[in-house]
């Protein structure tokens, strides 16, 4: 009786485990998405419509406070939309946790917590384990593989509080890899990290896109991402003002910085 109860509890996992959505759906699709924070005088993002396909690497750029992180959080199901819709593989955001991986900004983690790098990377497998389960041999293999891929194998037993900024970012990306998600949301993955780490991050993200994963990376440092990504989107004051293939978007963006002009029209 107790064993049966435990088994049914273990099967439930943490949340929703929708695997396949309706056919031919986008990895991420928003329609007139508006998100407001409680007590804020204006929406953090307003009327944003976009779509990201599987295998596509999209960079979301814009100055600080333009709503990039809010959009990623909404896609990860961390914030409820105030208006409009947001769908992930055809499901409401937050309804297919096993297929979406969210890499937060480094400052959002409690780095003083006494765990090592290996354990933090293993937390990326928790979504597949669910309640009461311990890591399997396969989980350990994936963690070791991810540490190897990010070049941080020798840091496995280092306490997370002792890492440099670049090492922290590599660890978070390793955790994202072991999640084995199909939509990867990266919030400022290259912020304040060394040039070598940026190259490693770019290589890994390009590899993920080649494997057919959809990647949406928010960064204010679009110059480093531009040569490698497929599309560049730009946000301004909570609105999506540009959406174009990366090379063209980069040219437009540079021109806009030299010639003060009203926000460009949204290009579908």
């Amino acid at each position: 009786m107790i064993r049966r109860l435990l088994q049914s509890f273990r099967r439930t996992g943490y949340g929703h485990r929708s695997s396949a959505g309706p056919g031919n759906c986008f990895a991420l699709e928003t329609h007139r998405l508006t998100v407001c924070y409680p007590g804020a005088s204006r929406p953090a993002i307003s009327e944003v419509t976009l779509a990201v396909e599987s295998g596509e690497w999209v960079v979301l750029t814009g100055d600080n406070g333009t709503g990039k992180s809010t959009l990623l959080k909404a896609a990860a199901g961390l914030i409820e939309p105030h208006h409009g819709s947001i769908r992930v593989f055809g499901h409401t955001a937050g309804r297919c946790q096993t297929r979406v991986s969210y890499l937060p900004q480094r400052g959002e983690l409690a780095w003083h917590f006494p765990i090592d790098v290996y354990t933090l990377v293993m937390t990326g497998r928790f979504v597949h384990m669910g309640w009461l389960r311990r890591p399997t041999r396969e989980d350990h293999r994936l963690v070791e593989q991810a540490l190897e891929r990010l070049g941080i194998r020798e840091l496995a037993r280092t306490q997370i509080g002792e890492l440099s900024g670049g090492q922290q970012q590599r660890v978070l990306l390793a955790r994202t890899l072991v999640h084995e998600a199909d939509l990867i949301l990266l919030d400022e993955p290259s912020n304040a990290v060394d040039a070598d780490t940026v190259e490693v991050i770019l290589d890994v993200v390009a590899g993920l896109a080649r494997e057919g994963k959809a990647v949406l990376a928010a960064t204010h440092d679009h110059a480093r991402f531009h040569p490698r990504c497929d599309r560049l989107m730009r946000m301004q004051s909570g609105r999506l003002v540009e959406d174009a293939p990366s090379a063209a978007a980069h040219r437009n963006w540079d021109a806009a910085r030299h010639i003060p002009a009203p926000a460009a029209e949204f290009v579908a």
Binding site: Y14, G15, G77, Q97, V100, Y102, P104, A110, T123
Partner: peptide
């Protein structure tokens, strides 16, 4: 442990 280290990741995976 996860909720103590990274509550946002915890929330994103359904905790």
């Amino acid at each position: 442990m996860l909720c103590s280290v990274d509550p946002n990741h915890a929330r994103a995976i359904g905790l």
